[in-house]
């Protein structure tokens, strides 16, 4: 019996509450000591402290990286790239020819040796990205992947039944549109270049960028003139 996500969250909440009560029950009343972190949190601290002692990682660099991914990199990077490709045909050509080099024009990318391939959606071809093995993702332009991208359900179903998956995301594509599913790897990441929405001819580049969603750049949505509220 598979635990649904909702059950899982409810259970996790109950377990966390129980742990909290336990921690307080064990605490002497007169002195409040720091609450011992969860098992995974302690394991990460252990790894980090051992690796820092061996000189393999620099703690300041770790903190900087966390800050970058939490606050500075996100789907807005990708949205800027997409909007530029819509208004600048020469850039669009460069982007489709060599994604890694084209996003470097924005200062994006730079680590890991992974190669970015940009896939252009057209009225007849719709691209969808997935990583069936783990969750390789174009971090440099989209930040970190959403939880559903990492799920077994998406990883397997995107390949078996892409049309059904898109329907669940609210995207019904006509039967004559070909859906191409691209499986990312450690060395090869994909980004979808969505179609420019009809009626957006008068919009400026920044206004266009504001319309581009993360989901559209994964290929589970289209870009529309009104950005769905609350969607990244």
């Amino acid at each position: 019996m598979k635990t649904s996500r909702r059950d899982f969250i409810a259970n996790a909440g109950a377990a966390a509450a129980a742990r909290h009560d336990l921690a307080h029950a064990q605490e002497p009343e007169q002195e409040h000591h720091a609450v011992v972190p969860s098992d995974p949190a302690l394991r990460v601290k252990s790894l980090e402290s051992l690796l820092v002692e061996k000189g393999l990682v620099d703690p300041a660099a770790l903190d900087a990286l966390v800050d970058t991914y939490q606050h500075k990199i996100g789907p807005r990077n990708g949205a800027q790239v997409v909007a530029r490709a819509w208004v600048d045909p020469a850039f669009r050509k460069r982007l489709l020819a060599n994604g890694t080099a084209a996003i470097a024009e924005f200062g994006f990318g730079g680590w890991g040796g992974d190669y970015l391939v940009v896939l252009e959606n057209t009225p007849k071809i719709h691209n969808l990205i997935v990583c069936t093995l783990c969750s390789c993702y174009p971090w440099a332009v989209l930040g970190l992947p959403p939880v559903w991208y990492k799920s077994a359900a998406y990883r397997s179903r995107a390949v078996i039944d892409p049309r059904g998956v898109l329907r669940e995301f609210g995207l019904e594509l006509p039967e004559d549109v070909e859906i191409r599913v691209h499986d990312s790897t450690a060395e090869l990441r994909y980004l979808v270049l969505p179609e420019r929405p009809p009626g957006s001819e008068k919009l400026k580049e920044e206004e266009l960028a504001a319309l581009v969603t993360r989901d559209a750049m994964i290929g589970v949505a289209k870009v529309t003139l009104t950005k769905p509220e609350g969607r990244p």
């Binding site: 990682v57 770790l62 359900a153």
Partner: peptide
Amino acid sequence: LSALPRDDGGPVFAEPWQAQAFALAV
């Protein structure tokens, strides 16, 4: 087939240790 979990575009790290583990590997 199992249903897709969905998100509301919230934070990608549920707890700080996840961010630390992520950074270590990178």
